[in-house]
Simulated scan of single mutants.
Amino acid sequence: MSGTEEKGVYRALFIVNFLACLGFGIADPFFPVYATSNGAAGIHLALIFSGFAAAKTLFSPLTGWWSDRIGRRRLLVIGLFAHAAIAIGYLCLPSPSSLILLRFLQGIAAALVRPVSLAYIGDMAPARHEGTAMGTFDISYYAALAIGPVAGGIVKDTFGFPGIFICLSALCMLAFLTALVFVRHFGKNRVSEIRTLRVDLSVLKKSGTLIALCGFIFSRTFGIVYFGMFLPIFMFENLRLTGIEMGVVMGANTIVTALMLRPMGLLSDRVARDRLILTGGTAAALLTAFLPLSETFPHILFLSIGIGFASVLSLPASSALLVEEGNRQGMGLTMGIFNAAMNLGAVLAPLAGGILFSLFGMKAVFYGAGFLGLGGVCFYHLARNTRKGDSGQGS
């Protein structure tokens, strides 16, 4: 594939990722309300959301490995089409038991899309420019995340829940058609090489970098989950902020991340990536621990912006190291294992946070996230230095 063709595939994947993520950004904030309005109780909600994350955790390594074996395009378009179909299923089968099953199936579909898309980008990322390629691509995710809830609110108020899920289905179908037409098969692995691969998670024992990155993102996920899950409660009950103020605090974090992804990607291709990950991870953990000490709107807004900046400091750098490791171990399998670690954190974080909140109160939730984040930084540093020669550019 020529350089021009690769750029075309990259742009198409950017659009595909933006469309699919925008659909979920529109639907996800209203999914709990939809479920409860159809009779879902607390246990149903727990199964709906934990089942989605559990499916992604279980299937991401498998689909990543599978994409190394049979090619990425086929799995990507299947996953996008499944997303579109399942979205309509939410309207046709609204009972709690049906929603649990459909959400689990959507988790499998998500495992077909996200790791495979990242593997595609990793395949195309030029040497010593991995951070720029991955950071720029992730703008599609964070931009959709920033726009989605606002667009979803407008759709919900105008067309109700049918409008929400029709939007999700339509956007995923548009992403499916874009991938079908513009995303061509591409990969550095050739069939003769791919057939020698096996789903072998012992790669974690062989790669200090991969296990370090998995530990880092697992611990970091707790802070991310608690920011979205518990911070709105803290702002409403403790700080008595208005709805607009709460929206500004939550949105500022995402906007900063989206705006800084490409500059930080360029930076990660020029300076030591380990330093960016360690600095960003440490800062994000400390700022998360400071959240419950906030007393005013400007204070918590400053912390939100700071967490966004600290997070984006480490994001392209870690993605670049992941691409380098994917070139050694298999891009799809590497991306799948990494996403599984992140999704495992998404499964366990709400459970741990709920226990901390019930036993010790709100402050303990954020202190716990900060402590775990610092532990993840230490784990990353130790794991990266356990295997000589297993280092990325600028490490």
Rank of each mutant, 00 (worst) to 15 (best):
A20G: 01
A20E: 12
G25S: 07
I26P: 04
D28P: 05
D28C: 02
P29Q: 07
V33H: 12
A40P: 02
A41Q: 15
G42D: 13
L47C: 05
S60V: 00
L75W: 00
A82F: 14
A84Y: 00
R103V: 01
L105C: 13
A110M: 01
L112V: 06
V113H: 01
A119D: 13
A133F: 14
T136E: 04
F137A: 10
S140A: 15
A143D: 04
D157G: 15
D157M: 14
P162D: 04
P162A: 12
I164G: 06
V181L: 14
F182Q: 03
G187C: 07
N189K: 09
V191W: 13
T196R: 15
S202I: 01
A212H: 13
A212E: 02
F216A: 06
F227D: 11
G243K: 13
E245L: 01
T254R: 09
P263I: 08
D269N: 10
A272G: 06
I277P: 08
G280R: 05
A284N: 14
S294T: 02
E295S: 14
T296D: 04
T296F: 03
P298C: 05
F302N: 04
G308N: 06
M331K: 04
M331T: 11
G332N: 10
L333A: 08
F338L: 06
G345I: 07
P350L: 11
A352Q: 06
G353A: 09
F360W: 13
K363F: 15
A369S: 15
G375K: 04
Y380L: 03
Y380K: 05
G392S: 07
